[in-house]
Write a protein that binds this DNA or RNA. Structure first.
Length: 293
DNA sequence: GTGTTTGTTATCAA
DNA sequence: CTTGATAACAAACA
């Protein structure tokens, strides 16, 4: 599941290949979540240049050489953005073998889940794959982008704003489970199910606890846990549990560091008691009943 | 056929 | 207005 660390990994990868690239042709295949429509989008992008790639929460933002226009990509649950040079050589001079790509994405590109293909004047190709068809592509103007960002996204875990005081403030008045609160993108941008469970484990807090019930020390522990887990996950290039791959079609390695997510029935890495799985905020939720209070 | 997977939004209730 | 709970969406898999 692409959460903040996964989208950030893809952004950093694509930035190396796509800044300065010019759209040559765009093919939209079996993809309904395209605004303002496949034909119009293809027409408007042709010949335009990518100026920069940004990220907000789990949203990837491409700034274009069209004044005040931006192309948004949301991967939702199973979206992948995979870039290939035509000569199969990556920027660093390392070749991406057919084997490593096959292993990561289950075959050559495009595949049956390829929903859109962007071909650049450099000869590079960007494949947008999405098994579940939840992902979207949206072309927006600057005012609309500004509104989307301010209405739907709270502080990023790496922001100065993401402080003990801020968390204490948003937790104090909320009776919802702490897990639901930290998953709310309007309050904290970028956490999803995996990192929410991992952060609560690191902070020794049970996911179903009412947010308002957290003590000051627990709020601090959670703030620090979120920041450190997000940083470590970015270093590991994200978590590939099922579907996620980076822009080279390769897996992220943070799956090796997961302490509780999808480890129900296994021993807690701290106390060796069994990890349990429940449902909180409508989501599969994993925790150690001994370590987390 | 059933339940499960999750990011986001719609809908409804309070 | 806010908050919170729940379903819905999509496709695949065990």
């Amino acid at each position: 599941m692409p959460e903040l660390p996964e989208v950030e990994t893809v952004r950093r990868d694509l930035k190396k290949y796509l800044v300065g690239a010019r759209f040559q042709s765009i093919k939209i295949i079996d993809f309904k979540n395209v605004a303002p429509g496949a034909t119009f989008l293809a027409k408007i992008l042709q010949g335009k240049e990518i100026i920069d790639l940004r990220r907000r929460g789990k949203l990837l933002i491409l700034d274009l050489s069209i004044p005040d226009k931006h192309l948004l990509f949301h991967l939702k649950m199973t979206g992948q953005l995979i870039y290939q040079q035509s000569n199969k050589l990556l920027a660093g001079g390392h070749s991406l073998s057919e084997n490593s790509l096959s292993e990561a994405v289950g075959g050559k590109l495009p595949n049956k889940y390829t929903r859109a293909i962007f071909i650049f004047d450099s000869g590079g190709t960007l494949y947008f794959n999405d098994l579940r068809k939840f992902a979207y592509i949206k072309l927006v103007g600057s005012p609309e982008l500004k509104q989307i960002l301010s209405n739907n996204y709270g502080p990023e875990p790496m922001d100065r704003e993401f402080s003990l005081d801020y968390l204490a403030k948003i937790f104090k008045t909320r009776r919802a489970p702490i897990k639901a609160v930290i998953l709310n993108q309007k309050l904290i941008a970028g956490l999803g199910n995996i990192y929410a469970d991992e952060a609560l484990f690191a902070a020794k807090i049970r996911p179903e606890r009412a947010a308002e019930s957290l003590k000051k020390g627990e709020v601090l522990a959670l703030q620090q846990s979120i920041v450190s887990i997000i940083k470590r996950a970015i270093k590991a290039r994200g978590t590939t549990f099922r579907n996620y791959v980076d822009a080279q079609g390769k897996k992220g390695s943070f799956v090796n560091y997961l302490q509780v997510y999808q480890r129900q029935g296994q021993a807690c890495p701290v106390c060796s008691k069994s990890i349990i799985k429940t449902k909180v905020a409508g989501r599969g939720t994993h925790y150690c009943p001994h370590c987390q209070k």
